[in-house]
């Protein structure tokens, strides 16, 4: 789990570094970033309500603030915002948001606003990368930082899968089917990307996804 959290954190650092160092967000999907902000805000509504650990609270805070930062850069920064590929980033996010919300309203652990929003965030996260993957496929010569970002972001849920297997074996009564199935789907969506990422990495070439 720690490795998963760190990979998640590194993915964000890599993305912020890329944007800040190159003053460019080309190849980065604003739609995916906005979906992630929605995921974090709806999942971490309990930030001020239930305290688990300083670590958890800090990470929640970092995830919300950093995705807000990335969106701010892409929308408002006078240099960076001009490098955003708006014509290419055309995924219709309503097709991800509404089904996730309806599914969360039907399949959840408890019928309450907080619980439905939390479940919604789990479902939405599992598909939030799709606009980014579509944009990558449309971009020729994806830069290394962007492909590293997607690789780290994809690895994070994969590492959580290992954590869940471990917890399931060692903790009595530890079951969370909604999170497990969503996490499996989330990782499966990256399989194709992982294949081409590792292939280009081995050949020491820039990543380009077949269209």
């Amino acid at each position: 789990r720690e490795a998963g959290d760190m990979t998640h954190l590194f993915s964000i650092i890599v993305l912020l570094l890329k944007i800040n160092a190159t003053k460019s967000c080309s190849g980065v999907s604003l739609k995916t970033q906005e979906l992630y902000l929605l995921v974090f805000v709806t999942r971490y509504l309990d930030l001020f309500q239930s305290y688990i650990s300083l670590y958890n609270s800090c990470m929640k805070f970092i995830f919300i603030v950093s995705s807000g930062c990335i969106i701010g850069y892409m929308r408002k920064h006078k240099v960076v915002s001009q490098t955003y590929d708006a014509e290419q980033d055309t995924f219709r996010v309503a097709f991800l948001v509404w089904p996730s919300f309806l599914l969360a309203a039907v399949i959840n652990q408890k019928l309450s606003v907080m619980e439905i929003l939390w479940t919604f965030s789990i479902y939405l996260e599992s598909v939030a990368i799709l606009p980014q993957l579509v944009l990558l496929q449309r971009t020729k010569n994806v830069d290394n930082l962007t492909s590293n970002y997607v690789f780290l972001l994809g690895s994070y849920r994969g590492l959580y899968l290992l954590n869940w297997i471990y917890r399931c074996l060692t903790e009595e009564g530890y079951r969370q089917w909604i999170v497990w199935i969503s996490g499996l789907l989330q990782t499966a969506i990256y399989c194709d990307f992982f294949y081409y990422y590792l292939k280009s990495w081995r050949k020491n070439e820039r990543l380009s996804l077949p269209s």
Binding site: S50, K60, N108, Y160
Partner: peptide, 10 residues
Amino acid sequence: DEPAEAKDEL
């Protein structure tokens, strides 16, 4: 009442 499950992961 109790939350549906302890949400101790991120």
